[in-house]
């Protein structure tokens, strides 16, 4: 191949910008060192230069030699941009799937008690609050409620738990607004009159609602909530006794369905997180907003 084909010349042009003619000279000088070929070479150079004037593609000034191109492509398709993109995408996907997984787990827990044929926790009741006003299960609708069963003459566990409930309530309120109804239902209706409850609960949180009723009403409510309690039915006034009862917080959703039980091993922060997450999952904004003020 004595004469440079158009193709070779074109490649040479693409790869080199400044010294194209010289390389071309050397290449062709070595392969065809005759005077005739040199003349042809000059013609080729002229052709290249002529072509360059008509070329409207810009030259890649940064990549001047084969070595530079090789260096650029040495790492294959991997470079810092690709790495960043990869890590960001992976991180984003991981965060998304972790969040979705947790959300689905919560949803499963929350919907366990919905529908037909599921064990029911909670149910209709009609009691009186600490001001002596009627409070029924319908008053719980539209908001999440945190239900605790206890009694005022409780030596150590209930006061601790109620203190924790006050913390939980404040934390949830801080995160989600006024979406939670803190209820304490007494298991000791004989001693816990509305007035007693009012005085007792005011020391824990001004928003706490204390519910009481007669023995039958309380028994039915406890039964609905699957709460075990052992209050003597007939007690003399002033009698001294303790009541055994279950010690869970019951989280009920705005439709009055049981969501989750929160045990003593939960700290206030953990419990508040569980509640706030459920509140955020709630997808029926109409009901929520109706009470969300």
């Amino acid at each position: 191949m004595a004469a440079p084909s158009r193709c070779t010349a074109h490649i040479a042009t693409a790869l080199r910008s400044n010294a194209t003619p010289r390389i071309a000279v050397r290449t062709f000088a070595s392969t065809a060192p005759s005077a005739a070929s040199r003349t042809r070479l000059r013609q080729a150079q002229q052709t290249i230069e002529a072509r360059r004037q008509f070329s409207n593609t810009s030259y890649r000034q940064a990549l001047n030699t084969i070595d530079q191109i090789k260096a650029r492509n040495k790492g294959g398709p991997f470079n810092i941009t690709a790495a960043l993109l990869f890590v960001t995408t992976a991180g984003g996907l991981w965060a998304y799937f972790t969040y979705e997984k947790e959300r689905m787990a919560r949803k499963r827990v929350a919907e366990q008690t919905k529908g037909v044929g599921k064990p029911k926790v909670g149910g209709p009741f009609e009691l009186v609050d600490q001001d002596g006003k009627v409070f029924s299960s319908n008053d719980m609708l539209g908001k999440y409620s945190l239900v605790y069963f206890g009694f005022t003459h409780c030596p150590d566990i209930c006061p601790d738990e109620l203190d924790k409930m006050a913390l939980m309530y404040d934390k949830v309120r801080e995160k989600c607004g006024n979406v939670l109804l803190p209820l304490m239902i007494t298991c000791d209706p004989a001693r816990d009159s509305p007035a007693v409850l009012k005085e007792y609960l005011a020391e824990f949180h001004p928003d706490f609602i204390g519910l009481t009723g007669n023995h039958e009403q309380i028994k039915d409510t406890c039964k609905a909530y699957r709460v075990y309690f052992s209050t003597p039915k007939d007690v003399a006034p002033g009698q001294d006794y303790l009541v055994d009862h279950s010690i869970y917080f019951y989280l009920m959703d705005p439709e009055g369905d049981f969501v989750e039980a929160i045990g003593r091993n939960f700290t206030a922060d953990q419990a508040a997180k569980v509640i706030a997450d459920h509140v955020k999952d709630w997808e029926k904004p109409l009901r929520k907003e109706a009470r969300w003020e």
């Binding site: 005022t152 003459h153 005085e199 007792y200 020391e203 002033g238 009698q239 001294d240 006794y241």
Partner: peptide
Amino acid sequence: SSGSSDEGGVKKTAGGAFESPSRTNR
């Protein structure tokens, strides 16, 4: 349970229960 509050201590009912199990009493 005989003396409610006459010996000092918290107020109690005749049965020996707290009259009011308030935070201070607890």
